[in-house]
């Protein structure tokens, strides 16, 4: 995976952004008691792109992210995923729709091996229940073999071969992040939500991550939304950026447009606009 680390940034590929957007966030408002966490947020994520969501601490990025993964229910507004309303889908059915995610502080199954963690990502690809798993008829063995083959592929893709049988809880943070990414890919997502993937990584690891995000988009045909503090990462790999501050959208466009937007500069540097 080292060869693809140095890719040129953000040229929107021809043809991929056409048709209805994959994700369509419309007028989302979130209030916690009297506090307005998100005020009338609207944006779209076109198919096949890498979209960055930025904003200073406390801007509402994580709140928005949690609306997308159904941890929070917006006070009002709508979210459409591939034309379906997301807000009426129970949390455990989000993955089957094609939404995969990683977690800000890495939420692995610590007492399970790396391989088993990735295999759990394949849960929705299987159908076998309790009885079938206890008696293991041939179709369950085939299902399991197919899952293991794909998990092996993703473990190799994320360079995790050496840790396959290691307990996930004992691994260093950057490796845990890669396990999480492999697990998310195992769900066969169409939209991959990455919550601060660069947090806690050093410079070299961030460069690696860039390459991995590019190649997973190319290999696995996923659209990516990344919520990120790391400006260098977002600006260099996103095709499109949405910036929010104090719960409001302040910019929405290409990295260059967003970089020049006075409100963004003000939000990050605190200058008078």
């Amino acid at each position: 995976m080292n060869g693809i680390a140095q890719q040129p940034a953000a040229v929107i590929p021809v043809g991929v952004a056409e048709g209805t957007p994959l994700l369509d966030v419309r007028n989302v408002v979130v209030r916690f008691g009297g506090i307005v966490a998100l005020q009338d947020i609207s944006f779209t994520i076109p198919r096949g792109l890498i979209v960055g969501l930025i904003g200073p601490n406390g801007a509402g990025k994580t709140t928005l992210f949690n609306c997308l993964s159904r941890l929070y229910q917006p006070t009002s507004g709508e979210i459409f995923f591939d034309g379906h309303s997301l807000l009426s889908v129970p949390r455990h059915k989000i993955a089957a729709l094609g939404l995969g995610r990683t977690f800000q502080n890495v939420a692995l199954f610590d007492n399970m091996t790396v391989e088993d963690n990735v295999l759990v990502g394949g849960h929705i690809q299987g159908t076998s229940g309790f009885l079938a798993n206890a008696f293991k008829p041939p179709y369950v063995r085939r299902e399991e073999a197919a899952l293991r083959a794909r998990a092996g592929e993703l473990i190799d893709f994320m360079n995790l071969g050496a840790y396959r049988r290691h307990r996930a809880g004992g691994l260093p943070f950057p490796i845990r992040k890669r396990v999480e990414l492999a697990r998310a890919l195992m769900t066969r997502p169409r939209l991959l939500l990455l919550d601060e993937p660069a947090a806690g990584l050093n410079h070299e690891e961030v460069e690696n991550l860039k390459g991995q995000i590019h190649s997973l988009r190319d290999h696995y045909d996923v659209t990516v939304l990344l919520v990120e503090h790391h400006m260098n990462l977002v600006m260099s790999i996103s095709h499109k950026i949405v910036a929010i501050d104090f719960g409001r959208k302040i910019a929405d466009g290409t990295p260059d447009e967003v970089r020049r937007e006075p409100k963004v500069i003000q939000a990050y540097l605190g200058l008078e606009a």
Binding site: H92, M112, H123, S128, E143
Partner: peptide, 30 residues
């Protein structure tokens, strides 16, 4: 039977719920 159950799809889901319920749910486990 228990060993089969615990070493397959269902057993992994059972254990995943113990370790990280939020992530388990995000992986599509009911």
């Amino acid at each position: 039977l228990a060993s089969n159950l615990l070493h397959g799809r269902v057993g992994r889901a059972i254990t995943a719920i113990r370790d990280q319920p939020v992530a388990a749910e995000a992986m599509g486990i009911n």
